[in-house]
């Protein structure tokens, strides 16, 4: 009777397969660690500079935003470019969880800067209250967005939405501080913006995941702004033209 039994339990090719895949994952993991920690340093700088908006009166905002763009966002864009070039060599969703939080943070610093009037271009000068679309974010970062037809680095809709919730939190803080700094007009702008976005979020059918959790938190940001507006209206401090 001829034997069906192989000579060995383990074919050498299995060893090679495991070694090769394991080595690749370790290598990619280490490189990703380098890339994301470099990116995270730029994000921290950027967020730190942006935190000054809470103590900077509106008329002095524009030099601050310029500084944010130069020393915060520009390095972020470079670091994102490196990350994009590296990760596009590998299946996007295999490693995406390693850097998605950083991408969100980059997008949120950009959205906040642009909303406050920064990140203007020649064709479209910066102005207060401008929300960058996900496409505009992609143009500035020079990466694709919401990619479907090929497997490469891109900014996802989820990342954009999560970044938006961060921006709303930041603006709800600014709504209060801008009253303290005497710019009630800005608070009114923030209130309208935050409410519009909140209405937008309510259009989404969310499943039970991080996006839902964070968007569930948005109502508290809205409430914070409303409370400020309420305080102002109670004391007749709202500007007449915009208050109506």
């Amino acid at each position: 009777m001829t034997s069906n039994t192989a000579a060995n339990m383990i074919d050498p090719s299995i060893f090679e397969y495991l070694q090769a895949h394991g080595a690749e994952e370790i290598e990619v993991g280490e490189r990703l660690h380098q890339l994301t920690s470099a990116l995270n340093r730029h994000i921290s700088t950027c967020q730190g500079l942006l935190s000054r908006i809470h103590s900077t009166p509106s008329q002095k905002l524009s030099p601050l935003l310029q500084q944010v763009e130069e020393t915060g966002i520009k390095p972020e864009i470079v670091a994102i470019g490196e990350l994009a070039r590296f990760t596009s060599n590998y299946p996007y969703y295999k490693y995406n969880h390693r850097f998605t939080r950083s991408v969100q943070n980059v997008v949120s610093t950009m959205l906040l800067t642009a909303w406050l009037g920064g990140l203007g271009t020649e064709s479209r000068p910066g102005e207060l209250g401008r929300l960058l679309t996900i496409e505009e974010v992609g143009e500035i970062l020079q990466v694709p967005v919401n990619l479907k037809d090929r497997d490469a680095f891109h900014v996802t809709i989820e990342e954009y939405l999560l970044a938006l919730t961060d921006v709303m939190e930041e603006l709800s803080r600014l709504a209060m501080n801008s009253v303290t700094m005497g710019d009630v007009g800005l608070t009114v702008r923030i209130s309208a913006f935050v409410k519009d976005l909140f209405a937008g979020f309510q259009l989404l059918n969310l499943r039970n995941d991080i996006v839902r959790k964070r968007i569930d938190g948005v109502k508290y940001h809205v409430k914070k702004v409303e409370d400020v507006i309420y305080d102002l209206s109670l004391r007749n401090l709202l500007p007449k033209a915009e208050g109506e």
């Binding site: 929300l131 679309t133 919401n146 809709i157 989820e158 939405l161 519009d196 976005l197 209405a199 937008g200 979020f201 259009l203 989404l204 059918n205 969310l206 996006v211």
Partner: peptide, 12 residues
């Protein structure tokens, strides 16, 4: 922003 969110909704 309504139409933007509507397109996000369709994608999601």
């Amino acid at each position: 922003y309504t139409s933007m969110f509507e397109s996000f909704r369709d994608e999601l």
